[in-house]
């Protein structure tokens, strides 16, 4: 029987990258006899080039962006997102968006999804929280997932047809990537108050929250099944 090798990278410039690698390792321990997985910390262009898919973890989105730029990884990342599957969690969601609200001068983003994301949308650390969410609409049987939001962003626009309005224009950051994601933006999950916290566009996935901080590996397994293999 032939075995297919898949390398899933986790961007390791700053943030909670080890947690993703541990979750993927556990999520793929059983049931994948046709595949051999490697989960790789990505800090350089050479490491990125080996990957079949990439996860951009939580961390500080400004730190991640500035480190990517000053270590020469920004352009390779912008190139990578043109074709390969990518999942951004929290700061990663900000990094893969096309437009950021409440962004910082000099912050660069990858423009992989046609979404506008608002940083620190819930407020400061005291407004961080955990809540059980029902993801069974897109992940079979996942009706109660303990979902951790930490200084989390939310998706505030999924069309980007109109120019940004009514907020501080100085804090709007637009991606310089010319890539056009041709898939439709699907809202995977909204909170009860209407805030959009999980979206998909083609082979790109964005979540406001941190499945890697939950003790449940189902979300990571779903990413492997749905986006990687």
């Amino acid at each position: 029987m032939s075995v297919t090798k898949k390398i899933v990278g986790v961007l390791a410039l700053q943030g909670a990258f080890i947690e993703h690698i541990q979750h993927f390792s556990r999520a793929t321990e059983n049931g994948y006899s046709k595949y051999q997985f490697e989960f790789l910390e990505v800090r350089t262009e050479e490491e990125l080039a080996q990957c079949d898919a990439l996860v951009i973890p939580g961390g500080e989105s400004t730190s991640m962006s500035l480190i990517a730029e000053s270590t020469g990884l920004l352009e390779p990342l912008q190139e990578f997102v043109r074709t390969k599957p990518v999942w951004g969690t929290c700061a990663g969601l900000i990094f893969i968006s096309k437009r950021v609200e409440n962004g910082k001068e000099g912050q660069r983003i990858l423009g992989a999804m046609d979404i506008q994301v608002k940083r620190n949308a819930f407020g400061r650390q005291l407004d961080s929280f955990v809540t059980d969410l029902d993801f069974s609409a897109f992940i079979p049987n996942l009706t109660k997932f303990p979902t951790v939001f930490i200084r989390a962003p939310v998706v505030t626009d999924i069309s980007l047809s109109k120019a940004p309005h009514s907020y501080d224009v100085d804090s709007i950051i637009e991606s310089s990537n010319s890539y056009v994601n041709t898939g439709p933006v699907e809202v995977l999950h909204k909170l009860e108050n209407g805030l959009v916290v999980a979206v998909r566009q083609g082979n790109k996935l964005g979540t406001s929250f941190h499945p890697e901080l939950s003790d449940n590996y189902s979300f990571h397994k779903w990413f492997i099944d749905e986006f990687v293999i």
């Binding site: 943030g15 909670a16 990258f17 080890i18 961390g59 500080e60 000053s70 001068e105 961080s128 901080l213």
Partner: peptide, 30 residues
Amino acid sequence: GLAQMLKGGVIMDVVTPEQAKIAERAGACA
């Protein structure tokens, strides 16, 4: 969890808003 998000990062002492902005622009995570 917030501390986990700070990993692999640098936290800088600052005494003025100007220093804080320099730290943020340099990529400090806090």
